[in-house]
Amino acid sequence: QQVSGTTAGAACGQAQLEGPVRDIVINTNPSSPPLSLFILYEQLKQQFRCFGSVHVHSSVENVAEGLCKCLGNGIRADLRNRTDFQLAITLIWKDVKPSPQMMMSAAYQTPIHGESNVARYLGRILQPSYDSQDPVTATEIDTWVDMASTQVLMGNNKERAASLRSLNSRLGKHDWLVGSGLTLADIVMWSALHQTGQAAGVPANVKRWLQACNDQPAFQPALKLTQS
């Protein structure tokens, strides 16, 4: 099995992550890129010194150029400086199912399946107090993330239509899915709607919210991928 790849890093951020480099490997299928990953990576770069690398496994062919550069912004980093980074994310485009699958290099664990759960893990790095700070808000966010995953990404047409109705109803009264600002719920739902080709032709409130997401700086690389 051959893997070819490019590496790139982005040095910024002051926040502290305990221990040495936290190493995350994500195998994911290029037929449905987990867009939320790229949004969260933009947010992580604001807080931590991140090191991203992208590889293509021999089980997939013709991976679009944009996907091969998705974590890098074209900046090459020197591998010798890897320990200067706090967070290393290795993304491998590979024919896996279920997709994506996330592993930590230094832990005895079950690989984490699903874009939703990868997003939750990255979300906990961004906000370590996520589970303890406000149980109601955290659980509301998780309820939308569940819906994005089980009803939109993996759901049938009926479940997707029901999800859009729930979204439209919530967004008729509020600007964001939970609370008064952008959360993981918005990021994962935005990603699910785009991956399933539903972002066009949504009801008015959902359309307005999609646009508000599109205006966020962290969404720009992911948005570009949907347009290519």
Partner: peptide, 18 residues
């Protein structure tokens, strides 16, 4: 810890999903 919490999420979704 945050990894175990995410493993819990993985299984919660598995229980209602697959």
């Amino acid at each position: 810890n945050s990894l175990e919490a995410t493993e819990v999420d993985h299984w919660l979704e598995f229980s209602v999903g697959r």
